[in-house]
Design a protein around this nucleic acid. Structure first.
Lengths: 321, 321
DNA sequence: CATGGCTCTCGACAAAAGTCAAATTGGCAT
DNA sequence: ATGCCAATTTGACTTTTGTCGAGAGCCATG
């Protein structure tokens, strides 16, 4: 029989191997197939999320620094990826940690909002598979027409795929050419509904963007470097889900923001668990802005960034910048 | 240096291996230790629950029969361990499944009530380790003085150990010689408190016992065969946490029950998730009684028992026996 | 200060798991 | 019916992992 090896068979193999602790050859003989097939089924089982291998992220929160940051920033939980030696690629470390933390936060029946950017996409890319039920992943902001590598819909769909969840894409451009058009589009039932549904999420995953010429909103063509410089002139401090925020973490009053189709910051704040992940040290200022605006409740950063945040919080307690 | 390999080091090894997907020799060189040590650390990490390998129990609920049982018995969830061929030891199958289901039901911060008996102990014994936080495991009934193999306190402590949780034992005998003494003991603050705390649990794990000479309450010496026969004569149908229940699933009105120190059935019913596991086919009648009394919300049984339950439910819909 | 018990560590071997190309199978269109 | 295609299975090979006994460092004790 060369039919598709039923999910059933994969499951049985995984069950005997992982739950009963049999060896592959024992599983093979019980199932009357070759050991090589068993090995293949087991790989599939891991890739499908039928088996879940997760490592506790406990130690990263147990860190004294993490605790102090939680207090200083009034966050629900902070995870700090250690800098120490052995992996030169700090940002991968952070992403791996973030993926684990994310999976630990997700529960059955959740509705998850996902923003976009390199960080989010990296996380999606290394996240292990899981077999959650009744999970919906929704896109937090409009799409890019341009062929950019870390498109919002890609981030959403990839995460949905990994979780075995339903992905809900946003069928609207991220930024429009006129405010009128943006307003009109937001009033469209389909779009309005989707925007309204964002506050029903109970978990959000996002990063924060810089407001310089390297910013992903510039790279993807939503803004050109000059426009960005101008925005910086009037107080732009960071980018959240495609929107420009000021140092207080509020949406900047500017034409660009009015032309963007994205989750309102208020809707974001309505989400119970908001996991922010910051990989680059250069995102210090934007992160401060996001924190000031209470845009996240859970934070994953590297040790260096954590130290800077602590120093800053210590220097200016209870006050932004 | 031959100091105790810090939890830290085990965690790092586990992290690099499982989360980053490095090979053992790569982990070894990053950590500057031998590969053999890495292998050892990883085993410890698995045994400690720092890493969690779990297989989805999805398929066992997806079963059509499981669904029909859920409907017929009005249970929240039913898992059915397949009989089919390859493992002659059906009851081990059921216990392994039950352990997985149990671990899937436990959440951080839970308070778990645990009964006793061979089934519960078997589950505890094969359950994999986990690193839950703020979990408390409480004993649902009094203890046995006699050296019986599956003592209530053993069940409780073993499960607590596996979950890395706090175990709360019951420092009272299961059964006393006079009703007066039992009443007095129940009135003792320590005991009363513990009994009262049972309804605060949000998860319970128990099985049901038979009321014949093989019953564990007989084997452990709480009752002798003759007494048991007498109880059967006046309507005893099963044993729950050391108490005798009748066919309706209510506590039997008898001296024995009045001499027992155990969770009141009302307290049990107040627990949100009550996982009942039945291994032996001979426990059909006791199980019916427990079901009739609404004593469980989640059920793990073997395929044969499931079929009997379905037949029974089909034959006498909406009515007990 | 030497001794003994203890645990941790390492190297080498044995066992198990992963991988690949070739062979087989069933489905499907011709 | 026949031959092709895609998917699956397998056996043989390589790589990776588990395990064991020997050795080394630490601590407490005489």
């Amino acid at each position: 029989m060369a039919i598709r090896p039923a999910e059933q068979l994969i499951h049985k193999a995984a069950w005997l191997y992982y739950a009963h602790g049999l060896r592959q050859d024992q599983v093979a003989s019980q199932l009357n197939i070759s050991r090589a097939s068993v090995a293949m089924y087991l790989r599939k089982a891991r890739e499908t999320g039928i088996v879940n291998i997760s490592t506790s992220t406990q130690l990263f929160t147990d860190d004294v620094m993490a605790r102090r940051l939680e207090d200083a920033l009034k966050l629900d939980a902070v995870w700090i990826a250690p800098e120490n030696g052995y992996n030169p690629d700090q940002s991968t470390d952070i992403a791996v940690l973030a993926a684990s933390v994310f999976l630990e936060l997700v529960k059955k029946g959740d509705r998850i909002g996902v923003a976009w950017g390199r960080t989010v996409y990296t996380i999606a890319d290394i996240m292990s598979y899981a077999d959650l039920q009744d999970v919906t992943v929704v896109q937090l902001c409009g799409n890019l027409g341009a062929p950019y590598s870390y498109r919002p819909d890609q981030c959403t769909m990839e995460i949905a795929r990994r979780l075995n969840a339903k992905g809900l894409n946003f069928y609207a451009p991220l930024v429009l050419s006129t405010e009128e058009l943006a307003r009109a589009l937001r009033a469209e039932p389909v779009i309005r509904e989707q925007l309204a549904g964002i506050s029903d999420c109970n978990l959000a995953l996002f990063s924060v963007g810089t407001v310089d010429a390297d910013s992903h909103v510039v790279k993807c063509g939503a803004l050109n470097p000059d426009e960005m410089a101008a925005l910086r002139g009037i107080g732009a401090a960071g980018v959240i889900a495609g929107q420009i925020i000021d140092a207080r973490g509020e949406a900047l009053d500017c034409s660009y923001n009015r032309r963007v189709i994205s989750a309102e910051l208020g809707s974001l704040r309505a989400i119970e668990k908001r996991l922010m992940v910051v990989q680059e040290d250069s995102k210090f200022e934007p992160l401060l802005a996001a924190l000031a605006g209470g845009l996240c409740t859970h934070l994953v950063v590297g040790a260096h960034m954590a130290q800077r945040l602590l120093d800053h919080a210590g220097a200016t307690p209870h006050k932004a910048s």
